[in-house]
Structure formats: structure tokens, C-alpha cells
């Protein structure tokens, strides 16, 4: 019998398995347990930040499917997110329907918008595509503000409390579990999608679209599909955002939010499901970390107190992004992979 290395595949089926080792499974199990008990020990501040990260994760996953896997840059992700959020807000306000109608409906509506943008954008590439999607974002913002008898415009619209089969999730700690489950579902389905023919077609389009079409990938169909799936994710995330914030306003969905999502997937790692998660958590939580660290520093060195300015936090955040990418252009998932191989091959790291 041949000597087996730590991960050894004997069939293709084994090669594309999601959880390949028992170690991985147990680590994930442990992680889930930690997540499950967290609201019991942590304060609502932390729980709220994780809630935001969950929402960002789902949206970033969507953008990664479009940009990281299919290679279609989008600077209009916030628009799809907004469509989802407003769909949830308006539908649940007008028709008093439960979440299992609202959320899928907002996902589907956003997906329709995605198709609507995707079809005319088929011919565009690179920065041109980025600009076209960005202008879609501007138009959506305009519509949301102007069409105020439906969206309530600049006054903002409040969203009824999310309730699951009559049980209201009226606090952050309660909605937390709901979000964790949905995020896990979103991660699993994105990872699974990438193992199917559709996922491979996406990657083929990204790597060489002409070659892909020669090999029988229908470019039109798959590009539009990528837009639809990505917007569906954004729509769901938007709906969840509406439920968590319980109040939404056009100012929540600006161009900067689109840039933020792009930042998440680039920092996390393009074309990596895990990367989307890392990036989303990084961008959401790191600023709070920096803040806490700065407060710690001022406690340590009281002389800094007068010099200290909140601008430093944000400057540090920008600097961190730059340094990260200069030293690890593949993003956080690149670092993660390196650490993983390091442990896996230990003590023969090289």
C-alpha cells in the first residue's frame, strides 16, 4: 500500500468533497458550538456586530459569485441590497405577510433586477461594466428617494418585527440564531454551487470567456445567471438588514456601501467562499477593534489623550487595508491557506 499523505483522494468525488477530513468537521462543530453559546456569555454589542457580519457575509458571498468567480465587476451591489431591503419593508408593511414570504420575495425581486441589469451589460467588460453597474446604483437611489408614496422616500420606512411562526424575534440575541442559520445555509449553498457544472462554467468564463464558449458554455445564459444569483444573495441580505435594523433609509445604501462590499471580497479573497466570510467579518468588526485598541492605548499612555482624534481609527483602517494587500495580495483566504498548509505539513513546513 502506498504511503498516504494527510489528504489523499482516491476519486473525483472525494476530491470535491466539502468537508474532507474529520479534523475539519470537528473544528467546524466546535466553531458552531461557540457561536451557539455566544449570546449567553457575550453582551448585545458583540451579538449585534456578529449580526451585521452575517448580513455582510451573505451579501459579500453574492458579490463574490459575480465578481470573484465569474469575473464580472459590479459597483452596484448596494443597489440590489437596497432593493431587497425595500422589498421586505414594503411587502411586510403592506400585506402583513410572514418572513418566509417576504425574504424569498425580496431575493427574487433583486434577482429580477439583476437580470434586468445583466442583459444589457453582457457586452461590457472590466471598468466599463463597473461604471454601468455603478450608474444603476445611482438610478436606484434616485428612484427610492423620488418614489416616496411607496418607499416613503427620505423619511425612511420602518419594518415590522420579524416573527417566526408567531414567535417574535424582537431582540438582537433572538434574531442572531436565525441569522446564523441562514448564513450557514448561504455559505453551504454557495460552496455547493461552485462544485456543480454552473459553478465551473462561471470560473471558465472568468478565466477565458472565449475559450469557455468554445467548450460549450453558453455565455449569455451563464453571465445573466451569475447576475441573478448574486443579486438574489444581495436581496436576501438586504431583507435581513431591514429586519435587523427595523428601519431603513436611502442613506443606508450609498455608493460607498458598494465599494465596501467590493473591499470585503478583495480583502477576503476573490473567488473564495471562505474569503467572502473573512472579508465581511474583517470589514465589519475591525473598525470596532481598532477603536477598542485606541482606547486601550489612551489608557496606557494618558499623554496621548489630548492628541487622540477619532480620525486616527479610520486612518489606521485604511492603512491596514493597504498593508494587507501589499503583503498578501490574495487576501485573507491566502493567509488562511498558508497557515493551514503550515499546520498540515508540520513539522515539514516547506
Amino acid at each position: 500500500m502506498a504511503i498516504r499523505s494527510k489528504t489523499f483522494s482516491e476519486s473525483y468525488h472525494e476530491d470535491i468533497k466539502l468537508f474532507r477530513t474529520i479534523w475539519l468537521k470537528s473544528w467546524i462543530g466546535l466553531f458552531l458550538v461557540v457561536l451557539a453559546v455566544l449570546p449567553l456569555i457575550g453582551d448585545p454589542y458583540i451579538v449585534y456586530l456578529i449580526n451585521l457580519s452575517c448580513i455582510a457575509t451573505i451579501a459579500a458571498l453574492g458579490l463574490n459569485i459575480l465578481t470573484g468567480f465569474t469575473g464580472q465587476i459590479s459597483l452596484g451591489h448596494a443597489a440590489f441590497f437596497a432593493i431587497g431591503a425595500y422589498a421586505t419593508a414594503i411587502i411586510s408593511n403592506r400585506f402583513q405577510v410572514p418572513f418566509w414570504v417576504c425574504l424569498p420575495a425580496s431575493g427574487v425581486l433583486a434577482a429580477c433586477a439583476g437580470i434586468f441589469v445583466g442583459i444589457p451589460c453582457l457586452r461590457l467588460k472590466g471598468l466599463y461594466l463597473a461604471m454601468a453597474t455603478m450608474s444603476f446604483g445611482v438610478v436606484v437611489e434616485y428612484v427610492v428617494i423620488t418614489w416616496d408614496n411607496v418607499t416613503k422616500g427620505v423619511r425612511g420606512i420602518s419594518v415590522p418585527t420579524l416573527s417566526i411562526f408567531g414567535y417574535p424575534l424582537d431582540s438582537n440575541n433572538k434574531i442572531y440564531y436565525f441569522l446564523i442559520v441562514l448564513t450557514a445555509l448561504a455559505i453551504l449553498s454557495a460552496a455547493n454551487l461552485m462544485r456543480t457544472r454552473v459553478g465551473r462554467a462561471f470560473i471558465a468564463i472568468r478565466d477565458r470567456d472565449i475559450a469557455a464558449s468554445v467548450m460549450g458554455v453558453n455565455l449569455t445564459q451563464y453571465k445573466v445567471m451569475a447576475f441573478a444569483i448574486s443579486s438574489f444573495y444581495a436581496g436576501i441580505a438586504g431583507g435581513l438588514y431591514a429586519y435587523v435594523m427595523e428601519y431603513i433609509h436611502p442613506e443606508h445604501f450609498t455608493f460607498l456601501l458598494s465599494v465596501q462590499y467590493l473591499a470585503m471580497i478583495i480583502i477576503g479573497g476573490l473567488g473564495s467562499v471562505l474569503g467572502s466570510v473573512f472579508g465581511a467579518v474583517f470589514i465589519t468588526i475591525i473598525p470596532e477593534f481598532i477603536k477598542a485598541f485606541a482606547q486601550f492605548l489612551t489608557l496606557l499612555f494618558p499623554a496621548l489623550q489630548d492628541k487622540y482624534d477619532d480620525g486616527w481609527n479610520i486612518a489606521a483602517f485604511g492603512l491596514l487595508i493597504m498593508l494587507f494587500l501589499i503583503f498578501e495580495p490574495k487576501g485573507l483566504s491566502g493567509i488562511w491557506n498558508r497557515i493551514k498548509t503550515c499546520f498540515k505539513n508540520w513539522p515539514y513546513t516547506y
Partner: peptide, 19 residues
């Protein structure tokens, strides 16, 4: 500082109350 963003403002209030 909430950077004039609602999600950050909500986070800030939670921090002020619980921390």
C-alpha cells in the same frame, strides 16, 4: 463617533449601554 451611519450608531449605543 458614528460616522453618520445608522448601523454604526446602533453599535455605538449598544457599546455605551453595555460596556
Amino acid at each position: 463617533d458614528d460616522e453618520f451611519q445608522a448601523p454604526k450608531s446602533v453599535a455605538a449605543l449598544k457599546k455605551l449601554i453595555h460596556r
